[in-house]
């Protein structure tokens, strides 16, 4: 067992963990944060996406011990007071979710994408979400949600291919 200390959604946490414990299982079972889901075995689907030190990672392919000393943000952490985060709000506004299983991971991937590229083109959004699978929406409304969120987050910005923050 290994002792880890880390920050989860702004809260300092400490735990004794088996080295092989995956971050996603630490979040779900130890912290009770079950928004991130496991959708595959092969780092393909992105349903488990969370932010690790503010960038998107697949928490099924990060050991909890690797996150020691770092800061983790899950979908729950985007809405500390129950208010929808602007990206989440855009998903609702644009019907960017159906069954909801991919949604927390998709939203976290979108948050990370917009932090790196605040005004992506449609093509950049699609490429930026290539690591997140959705079976319900055909991606149409997810892409619309992310483009909409970009406008909401930074209304004055302009969209230009290849330009990033």
């Amino acid at each position: 067992m290994t002792r880890i200390e880390l920050t989860v959604n702004g809260e300092q946490r400490s735990a004794e963990v088996e080295p092989r414990l995956l971050l996603v299982h630490y979040l779900r079972e130890t912290c009770g944060l079950r928004a991130a889901n496991v959708g595959c075995d092969t780092t393909s689907c992105g349903a488990c996406t969370v932010l690790l030190n503010d960038v998107s990672v697949k928490s099924c392919t990060v050991l909890a011990v690797q996150a020691a000393g770092m800061s983790v943000t899950t979908a729950e952490g985007l809405a500390p007071d129950g208010e929808l985060h602007p990206v989440a709000a855009a998903f609702r506004q644009n019907h960017g979710l159906q069954c909801g299983f991919c949604t927390p991971g998709m939203v976290m991937a979108a948050v990370s994408l917009l932090a790196e590229n605040p005004h992506p083109t449609e093509e950049e959004v699609r490429e930026g979400l290539e690591g997140n699978f959705c079976r319900c929406t055909g991606y149409h409304n997810i892409v619309a949600s992310v483009l909409d969120a970009a406008d909401v987050l930074d209304p004055g910005g302009t969209r230009a291919a290849g330009v990033s923050a």
């Binding site: 079950r34 928004a35 889901n37 979908a75 809405a79 019907h95 979710l97 949604t103 927390p104």
Partner: peptide
Amino acid sequence: VLRTEDPRFLTTGGVYTEDV
């Protein structure tokens, strides 16, 4: 009409069988 079920999915996530 926007979905009334969405806020839950977008904050704490859905409660699927494994989450029960």
